[in-house]
Amino acid sequence: MSKPKIASDWMCGCAGCHMSLLDMDERILKIVELADLRATPITDLKEPDESGVDVGVLEGGINNSANEEVAKKMRARSKILVALGDCAVFGGVPALRNFCGVQAALRRAYVEAESNEEGSQIPDDPELATMTETRAVHEVVDVDYNVPGCPPDPDTIFYVLSELAQGRKPKLKDELLHWD
């Protein structure tokens, strides 16, 4: 039997969850032993296999049309979808923006912020993704496992991936479960 395939991607997050993944140190070899690590932000392959993967992992919330696409693609191509980290699970720090709304946030960032040059404008190139409210992954696509933490501990990530790679259902509790 071939090894289960794992793919991951990041959206509106800070890459911290993937850093935490790498922080599992040599245990990553164990993951590679158990599973076939496919497309991830830290490998060369950039998109989950069209033929599908067993486990898809998403870091970050969904805050624009591009994130939506990434999430939907990962969902469509994964048997099991994991939302990794507070931003993916709850919206996280970027969701603070939801209090003021998309337009106010864009205006603040591109026009009003002290660091902007006089006359700066909100970019409006049609090729750019459209910004939306920041949403948790489960608000856009179905999620099988939510793994909170900002970031989740390497131990937690190792546990979740190794359980899934071995066909078991991870259950987060006690020291593996935290929201901060």
Binding site: D86, V89, K173
Partner: peptide, 29 residues
């Protein structure tokens, strides 16, 4: 927003209660 809340990580009875019930997310955002 637990990550930057003063009481997160042991001193919040609400968060502790959610952990006790093994909540991994908020079903209603």
């Amino acid at each position: 927003f637990c990550p930057f809340c003063q009481v997160s990580g042991g001193d919040c009875e609400l968060q502790n209660a959610a952990y006790h019930e093994e909540m991994t997310h908020w079903p209603i955002q």
